[in-house]
Simulated scan of single mutants.
Amino acid sequence: MELLKQDIFDLVNLGIVDQANIMLGSRHDIIPAEFSLTTLGNEYFSAMELSSIPKNDIEPIYDELKYRDIFGLNEKGTKNVGIPH
Score class of each variant (00 low, 15 high):
Glu34Cys: 05
Glu34Met: 09
Asp29Pro: 00
Lys5Ala: 00
Leu24Phe: 06
Ile30Tyr: 07
Leu24Tyr: 11
Arg27Glu: 10
Ile8Met: 09
Gly25Ser: 05
Asp29Val: 02
Leu37Tyr: 14
Ile30Asn: 10
Asp18Cys: 08
Val12Leu: 05
Leu24Val: 14
Leu11Ala: 12
Asp7Ile: 10
Leu24Ala: 08
Pro32Glu: 01
Asp10Ile: 03
Ala20Ile: 04
Ile8Val: 13
Val17Ile: 15
Pro32Tyr: 12
Phe35Ser: 02
Arg27Leu: 00
Leu14Lys: 15
Gly15Trp: 04
Leu4Asp: 06
Leu11Arg: 13
Ile22Leu: 12
Ser26Ala: 11
Gly25Met: 09
Leu14Val: 09
Gln19Trp: 10
Val12Tyr: 05
Gln6Pro: 03
Asp29Glu: 01
Ile31Val: 15
Gln19Met: 08
Met23Gln: 13
Asp29Lys: 02
Ile22Met: 10
Val17Phe: 09
Phe35Tyr: 15
Leu14Ile: 13
Leu14Tyr: 15
Gln6Asn: 14
Val17Pro: 04
Leu4Arg: 12
Asn13Gln: 14
His28Gln: 12
Ala33Asp: 13
Asp18Leu: 00
Pro32Ala: 03
Leu14Trp: 15
Leu14Pro: 09
Leu37Arg: 14
Gly25Asn: 13
Gly15Gln: 01
Gln19Lys: 10
Asn13Arg: 15
Phe9Glu: 04
Ile30Leu: 06
Leu4Gln: 09
Ile16Pro: 03
Leu4Trp: 03
Ile31Arg: 15
Leu37Gly: 06
Met23Tyr: 13
Phe9Gly: 04
Asn21Cys: 07
Pro32Met: 04
Phe35Trp: 14
Gln6Tyr: 11
Ile16Ala: 07
Ile16Ser: 03
Ile30Trp: 05
Ile30Met: 05
Pro32Asn: 07
Asp7Leu: 08
Gln6Thr: 09
Gly15Thr: 06
Gly15Val: 01
Ser36Met: 12
Pro32Phe: 10
Ser26His: 12
His28Ile: 02
Glu34Asp: 11
Ile22Trp: 03
Leu4Gly: 10
Ala33His: 15
Ala20Met: 04
Asp18His: 02
Leu11Tyr: 11
Arg27Ile: 02
Ile16Thr: 11
Glu34Asn: 12
Gln6Lys: 11
Leu24Ile: 13
Asp18Phe: 01
Asp29Tyr: 03
His28Arg: 15
Arg27Tyr: 06
Met23Lys: 11
Asp18Tyr: 01
Ile31Pro: 01
Met23Thr: 12
Ile22Phe: 07
Ser36Pro: 11
Ile31Ala: 09
Ile31Gln: 10
Leu24Asp: 02
Leu11Glu: 05
Asn13Asp: 12
